[in-house]
Design a protein around this nucleic acid. Structure first.
Lengths: 225, 225, 225, 225
DNA sequence: CATGAATGAGCCTTCATTCAT
DNA sequence: AATGAATGAAGGCTCATTCAT
């Protein structure tokens, strides 16, 4: 009797949960070190020291395994980042906490972060379309946009399109991750964190001096593309 | 006998050049629409309406085909962006030209841009390591860093780590590309371009008020990588 | 996950050993009946009544399969021939035992013998060079040369170049094998055995006339190869 | 209009004959250096500096090309060996001339000899059966058997089965060729020639002492094949 | 629960052959 | 007389999946 495939209602046994967790952990390591495309069930099973069939036994298929990895890492990241962010009252501080928290997570959980990126990049439907739920940064982007809206309402930020800024913040964080994945420990994440916090503070700060404001950047949308 | 495999000196015939171009074009389309992993020779051949063997006839192998796609798109992008950037004397204007040019290329050559990104993400050595020459943004990053160094020397920019800022600029541009790839025409690239230009103008502008300056972020400009 | 690819230490299961043996057996039959070049995995699998993938599952690749066939048959032949030869004290008798044993093996294990010959003839490196370890008869030739050297030392044999005589003996045995492969049961191996024993007895026997004898049998023992 | 494919009656033009000869020559070289299995039309055409299609134009197919190579080399060898052999009145001298001539041909026409061997070994019908006309040594064997029968009739030779001895002679000659193909110039063919002549002189010589004769090996000379 | 075994589709590549020019 | 171009079958191999035990 194959164990639950999504819809079943019986709770998973303790042993089974442990196995699933172990498999997920190995999958993360493999994806991080070899890349999504090389993460075959055979490779994962070998790394985990188990038979290939076990994976199929505990997961409906490779898709469910990858989804589990995705969910698992996303949850870890959210637990690491969200509480700290929401503890800040001011939007500017929330933004800083978001950046610092995200990069700290990358520093502390390199393989998990890289796996996430690989899944975003590699996961496709059978028709070739990116799997939206996984691919899109929607939850993260929405969260950032909320911060920006709060900051706009409070006058903490200069005027800008929240979504574009949200995309920018996420992209830069992911960019650091890619650097880290490519060059390893040569990339100083603490330094990057300080730099990027400064970058977005400067980029979002409401202009103090109204004189400067007159040539403010988002005033007259430049016609030229 | 597959025509030219590297060492031959004879020029390619007109017909062959046309076929190669056609195959490269179809490969770009396939990669852009289905992803790098799904871009098998069979799929490409089907899209091109030719037999699988034709690809092997015109290219030494899949590797050469992908390399050709990469080179071809990189060249297009460079020709679109570099001249405009270098025509600007001031670093601040160069940066704007770089962002505007890159995003304009994305707007005009969506499939090509996406294919490039997919190749960067997907190309691995057999050992699973990313292929550095392709994977790294090094040429682009170096170009941006040169702009930032010029701007620093001229006092146009506030102090920051050039490499981190370069990574940030490239990441944000790629982030817009991903949005475009995911949501298509719903993403207004012209607007994004204006926003991102403003973002980095604000992020790099030399601070007038020296008070802020005192806690200047970039202590030790570190060696690349 | 393909079971054991060289480095693993776990013993093979009974079932797996049986499958490997079955596949090796079918490979021998195919090579013997269709030739080395026609022995594709598809053909072998079809003959074995299994799917092509099974072979890849049990063997690292075609190379390992062929190597296994080679080793397996060589071992059989050696076990059949060597003990009988070494039981003989005199070189002349050793030679006869070698010829009789080799031809008896051919008579009893036709397909295996033919497969061996096909592998010797067909196995090439990718550059087209014969694979020496397999191609060369070196082990067998060395064994024969040792017999001849013993016979020379004991004065049992007339003077001749041991290596050339060794090549001759092996060649004639292989020649009978080819006849057998070509004409099947029409070739009377027992008769051939008697004839060839007589042939080489006459060819190697020390000349009665001791005058010739005085100048010792092996003038210039030439470097092997 | 494709040129003759076997049955046509029009004579071949001079140019066409030259092309065919050139292609045959290159095929011999390729087979000798890379082996039969690696001798693809592409390789041959490349070596010949012509387009692959030319071969198909001048030959009905690969089979006809190989057959042509075979015929061509066999003719060369026959012209080299047969006249010298037939000039000898005595069987013993004919045998020596045959061996010396054959080995001299090998020494002088290494590639051709190796190609012949490769074709014998590699050429199969589509059903996998060896192509008899090519594979069998029949013409050569028959020729040798005739010599032996003459020698038997004249009492020059001891009693033995002509066919077996013929197989032995051919096999040993081919064995030297294989050594030459494997080890190149390290193999001293002149020495081998002397040794092998001596070998078969000793092996075939009529026994002086009739006492030994009484247990003569060949009781019943059996029907060929 | 877990496994070893087997499958079949798909991948990239090579090759003899065909054909319009 | 020759060629460049294209084809389609087959080759070895990998992989997610299934299944009896």
């Amino acid at each position: 009797m194959p164990p639950r495939t999504g819809s079943s209602d019986a709770p998973r046994s303790f042993v089974e949960e442990a196995r699933r967790a172990q498999i997920v952990r190995c999958t993360i390591e493999i994806i991080a070190s070899l890349g999504y495309a090389q993460a075959s069930l055979a490779t994962i099973a070998e790394r985990a020291g188990i038979s290939k069939g076990v994976i199929s036994y505990h997961f409906a298929g490779k898709d469910e395994l990858i989804a589990q990895v995705y969910t698992s890492v996303m949850t870890m990241a959210a637990q690491r980042v969200l509480p700290v962010v929401e503890a800040q009252p001011r939007a500017q501080d929330k933004l800083r906490a978001y950046i610092e928290g995200s990069l700290a997570f990358i520093a502390d959980h390199g393989p998990e972060s890289i796996a996430l990126l690989e899944i975003w990049n590699g996961l496709r439907t059978s028709a070739g379309q990116p799997v939206l739920d996984a691919r899109s940064y929607e939850p993260g982007l929405e969260f950032l946009q909320a911060i920006f809206r709060q900051g706009h309402a409070a006058g903490e930020f200069r005027r800008f399109v929240p979504r574009t800024m949200a995309v920018a913040v996420r992209s830069v964080i992911d960019g650091v991750l890619i650097q880290r994945a490519t060059y390893g420990a040569d990339v100083d994440i603490a330094e990057s964190s300080r730099e990027i916090v400064a970058l977005f503070e400067a980029a979002t700060r409401a202009v103090r001096d109204d004189a400067t404001r007159s040539k403010g950047p988002t005033r007259k949308p430049r016609a030229k593309r």
